[in-house]
Amino acid sequence: MSEHYDHVVIGGGVMGLAAAWQLAARGRSVVLLERFAPGHTRGASHGATRNMNNAYDDALYLDLYDEALGLWNELAETSGERLLTLCGLVTHGDQAVVTAAHDALAARGAATELIDAEAAAARWPGMRFSGRVLVNRDAGRIHSATALEVFAAEARRLGADLRFEHRVTAIAAAADGVVVTGVAADGEPFRIEAGGAVVAAGAWSRELLRDLVALPALRVTEEHPAHFTPQPSLREPGAEAWWPSFNHVRTAPSAGPSVGAVYGMLTPGEGVKVGFHAVGDEVDPDARRFRAPDLARAALREYVAEWFPGLDPDTAAEISCTYTSTESGRFVLDRVGPITVAAGFSGHGFKFAPAIGRVLADAALGVAFPPEPFRLAAH
């Protein structure tokens, strides 16, 4: 026997939850189906912190950032939970990238400045810097685990039905929408009919959409940032509060063959997260190692030893997550018939989640298509 909803959302990571929240807020009946338990570690949305990073020179992302910042603050006020800590963001390294981001932000009147490496090291003595340093004050970190809980709670409060441990096995187009079938944790099959589906399935996007949507190439990699313990001199009460979030955009001559851009932020109670961006091995999301290769571990340790005098490089507490990346790094946001697609967030999507939830709801309801550069034809 089928159940009937206006919309079915497939995927209960941050993007699926944001879409369910937005659709429910517009009075639609919504069911969300997530293959794993809440807070699981199999995808890309788990963990306590993410960068709230506005170091972009592209107006598309900066517009999305400004919208997301406003929505994060609204969610925090509505829920009573702290979702952001705007402790600042520092970006250094490739001077062309740093300058372009600064100029784009300054043109918008953003709270930003450029300082030299010596001044930055004096301000943040636990870090080393290369070249001029971009400082953004309307940036910092997201309390990402709390954010997932708030999206879920708000979606439920607005009437959405969130079902975890419900694995979707097939999506089929129907005359008046879609039919979604699968199996619940207790082995019981389910069948749901809906006017449309939002598919935000991360590393499993291609598997679910294979016969329905012509996706661009999506590369699924396993990434391994780690938390590092501050040195004793930076463990005094209140000392951790000064850690900004950071980006190090390494230029080709200084970056080793397995080392790309570097990012990170403080995770209170866990240390400072440091990670190489998008350098992991390509994987089957159902057959991961959940462990970095020894060479990658050694490279991260060496990087921390060189660039973070305020961290103990021998204290790495490794994390494992997936990136699902497009060749360009741009997201895939589009609607094809009754199916709205959200995929390929390429390791930099979380901060935009509330705004992306709005974009997906607009597309699913036929209010507006997503911005052209995110649509399938642009990839």
Rank of each mutant, 00 (worst) to 15 (best):
Leu60Phe: 11
Ala145Trp: 11
Asp294Phe: 14
Ala355Phe: 06
Asp94Cys: 08
Thr146Pro: 10
Ala48Arg: 13
Pro268Ser: 09
Glu188Val: 01
Ala299Tyr: 10
Arg123Thr: 03
Val367Lys: 11
Met265Asp: 06
Ala305Phe: 03
Ala368Ile: 05
Val332Ile: 13
Arg141Thr: 09
Ala104Arg: 14
Ala361His: 10
Arg35Met: 14
Gly349Lys: 04
Glu118Ile: 02
His143Pro: 08
Arg167Phe: 07
Ser29Glu: 11
Ala368Pro: 07
Glu223Phe: 01
Asp6His: 11
Ala353Glu: 14
Val259Asn: 05
Gly159Thr: 11
Ala197Met: 08
Leu300Asp: 03
Glu67Gln: 14
Val213Phe: 08
Ala261Leu: 09
His102Pro: 09
Ile356Thr: 08
Ala139Tyr: 08
Ala68Glu: 09
Ser144Cys: 12
Trp124Asn: 02
Lys273Tyr: 07
Glu207Thr: 00
Ile356His: 07
Ala363Leu: 06
Pro253Cys: 00
Arg335Thr: 04
Cys321Tyr: 04
Phe308His: 02
Ala18Cys: 04
His46Leu: 12
Ala305Gly: 00
Thr315Asp: 08
Ala37Gly: 10
Ser45Met: 03
Ala363Val: 01
Thr78Glu: 15
Gly344Tyr: 05
Gln95Asn: 12
Ala173Met: 08
Ser328Pro: 05
Gly16Met: 04
Ala104His: 14
Ala361Asn: 13
Arg250Lys: 14
Gly16Asn: 05
Leu23Cys: 05
Met52Lys: 12
Pro244Thr: 10
His379Trp: 10
Leu311Glu: 09
Ala37Gln: 13
Leu32Ser: 05
Val178Asn: 12
Tyr303Pro: 03
Ala106Ser: 10
Gly27Val: 01
Gly80Glu: 12
Val367Thr: 09
Val199Leu: 09
Ala44Thr: 11
Glu149Asp: 15
Gly11Asp: 06
Arg42Ser: 07
Arg335Leu: 04
Asn73Met: 07
Ala120Ser: 04
Tyr303Ala: 02
Ala255Ser: 14
Arg35Gly: 00
Gln95His: 14
Gly159Asn: 10
Arg330Gln: 00
Arg235Phe: 11
Arg108Tyr: 12
Tyr61Pro: 03
Asn51Pro: 07
Phe331Glu: 01
Ala241Thr: 04
Arg128Gly: 03
Asn53Gln: 13
Lys273Asn: 06
Ala194Thr: 02
Gly366Pro: 04
Phe151His: 08
Val332Arg: 05
Val14Leu: 15
Glu113Ala: 00
Thr221Met: 01
Leu212Glu: 02
Arg288Leu: 02
Gly126Phe: 02
Arg219Met: 09
Leu17Ala: 03
Glu193Asp: 13
Asn53Trp: 15
Ser346Glu: 00
Gly16Leu: 05
Gln95Glu: 15
Ala252Thr: 05
Arg128Gln: 00
Ser205Asn: 13
Ala107Met: 11
Gly337Met: 08
Arg167Met: 08
Leu215Tyr: 00
Thr322Ala: 11
Glu3Val: 02
Glu77Thr: 11
Arg167Lys: 15
Asp176Met: 12
Pro338Cys: 03
Thr181Tyr: 07
Val249Tyr: 15
Gly47Trp: 07
Val9Ser: 02
Val213Ser: 02
Ala343Trp: 10
His248Asn: 08
Arg156Leu: 13
Ala122Asp: 13
Asp294Cys: 12
Ala111Met: 10
Pro338Gly: 01
Leu23Trp: 06
Pro216Trp: 00
Arg297Lys: 15
Ser254Asn: 09
Asn136Ser: 15
Trp307His: 08
Asp286Asn: 06
Gln95Ile: 13
Gly159Lys: 14
Arg26Ala: 01
Asn73Gly: 02
Asp66Gly: 01
